[in-house]
Write a protein that binds this DNA or RNA. Sequence first.
DNA 1: GTGAAAGCGCTAACAA
DNA 2: TTGTTAGCGCTTTCAC
Lengths: 327, 327
Amino acid sequence: MAVGIKDVARAAGVSPATVSRVLGNGPVSAGLRERVETAIRLTGYRPNLSARRLRSQHSRTIGLIVSDLGNPFFTALSRAVEDAAYRAEMRVVLCNTDENPAREAMYLRLMQEERVTGVIYAPTRRMAASLGQMDFDFPVVLVDRTGPVGRHDGVLLDNRDAAGRLADHLAARGFRRIAGLFGNTSSTAEDRHAGFVAALAGHGLTARASFVAPAVAAAEEAAAALLAGPDRPDAIVGSNGLILLGIVKALKAAGLAMPADVAVAGFDNEVWTELVGDGVTVIEQPVADIGRAAMSLLFERLDNPDGAARTVMLAGRLIERGSTRRV
Amino acid sequence: MAVGIKDVARAAGVSPATVSRVLGNGPVSAGLRERVETAIRLTGYRPNLSARRLRSQHSRTIGLIVSDLGNPFFTALSRAVEDAAYRAEMRVVLCNTDENPAREAMYLRLMQEERVTGVIYAPTRRMAASLGQMDFDFPVVLVDRTGPVGRHDGVLLDNRDAAGRLADHLAARGFRRIAGLFGNTSSTAEDRHAGFVAALAGHGLTARASFVAPAVAAAEEAAAALLAGPDRPDAIVGSNGLILLGIVKALKAAGLAMPADVAVAGFDNEVWTELVGDGVTVIEQPVADIGRAAMSLLFERLDNPDGAARTVMLAGRLIERGSTRRV
DNA sequence: GTGAAAGCGCTAACAA
DNA sequence: TTGTTAGCGCTTTCAC
């Protein structure tokens, strides 16, 4: 059998409580502490986290529920969150929903059963809608996407502004028949769509926007249709890194050049965007800041459960590259 | 307070044991089962997994320890593992070590404290070496990288063969001054190096190989040095997706064309590889198969703890693209 | 098929 | 500072 705290106590000639105190940095005299520590080493004792959590009634665990770990934005986010958690001596359990509401519901349930301390969560639009009726025993901080107003803390990019800047940039460069492909699962894509449409309208332009599954294949298909159809756009925007990738693939498949035939721009400064052609113009998100901000909000909420919900909004940065050069 | 099994029992007019049986699909009469189920719904009962695990002495949890979630290979792997786990009604806890042995040790310890059922693990070379002395209370299946021989089950790509195929391909295409950049943290990179060197020798060629940190920036730097130095190679190979990316970036920064100035090839069929220039020649790994195989090995090991250690080796697939076209 | 009782490994409350 | 005791929420005997 596994060695427990009692075995250690026996080996050190102390009571289990003393061992527990050593483990938890409680008040123990130096002499006993040392004896216990050697006993721990000798016996190869490993605490049983289930027992500890059950008894102590706190899990020191935060859940991070993201919609797609294949999206580098979320991998980067998870790294930031994990670093912050580690500094606070917390564990993080990482959950990947694949934009699937059923999986979101499952993980949300799991978080309750694990009795996590708090959750950082990027909900699909569909789940965000039901979030209003749900009750959790832990604080939830929304990242990247919004939920019901005033109910949860959140941190987001200023999506309308960023999308507007993208639109302004294209208009300024002389593009006129501008299309946009937006994700159909997130509030974020909606916000980007809204900002995009509004900004183009400000230039007297009408946006041709469609909503697609936020995945490479779906975006590629939609972009291909756009390129093959009548009145081919002279610029296409993608609302996240995956969609942008699909657009670039479709262009390549159609044998069209960027920006000579069609300009391209979008969100997320992924590594490949500076590699294809003369680079793809993108909005870069301050991912690490987003992660840190989410953790801060979570910790503050734990300290002060009854304060008003807060939303932190961060600005994106436009990186101009060859894909939107004036031709 | 949270509602527990006793509250449900009281609400249903049964004993806690009966509720537990309903929860665990134990033998309960249809009538009572229904009463309990409605009581569960009414009370909003959520099981406490810590308590359940403590009492039942099994966690139904498998740990997946990967070296870099920013590497699409591992994101894909985690998806495959999670799917298989889900089908077996198991949870997976996903741990990202960033190729950092200290983090590996931490997560390995955590897995023990969580009393996981088993672990699937991609160790750095450094940790793999110490793995021989370590003892775990659960089976460990190594993926992508080897450990001490005969000690753990494992599933790997046939790395020597795949690297050899890459070398053969380059030699056949007429490249002669061939360099390779290999990761310096994994047995896998070593195997690829060995296969590469051996195959080139078979063509009477000498490989110029260097080992670098398996990350984009480090690879870019090393590739830049290679390109700027005397006797510039006419082909460079990268031992994983991240390194390959660094090489391509360095070429771009140096204003060199692919394959006109330098041919490029490597491992991992990441999306961007078919996008830059006329595409990059790569070895594609059967990631999903690797994940599934790892889970199978794990489950079989749980059934049969004392069988001999097994290693499953899978073949890679060479995808020829423009980056190695004969010029 | 059902309930009563014990106890998983630990920490917290209380006493000394 | 240390030990004794109780009990976290659940599952698993064991009896009936």
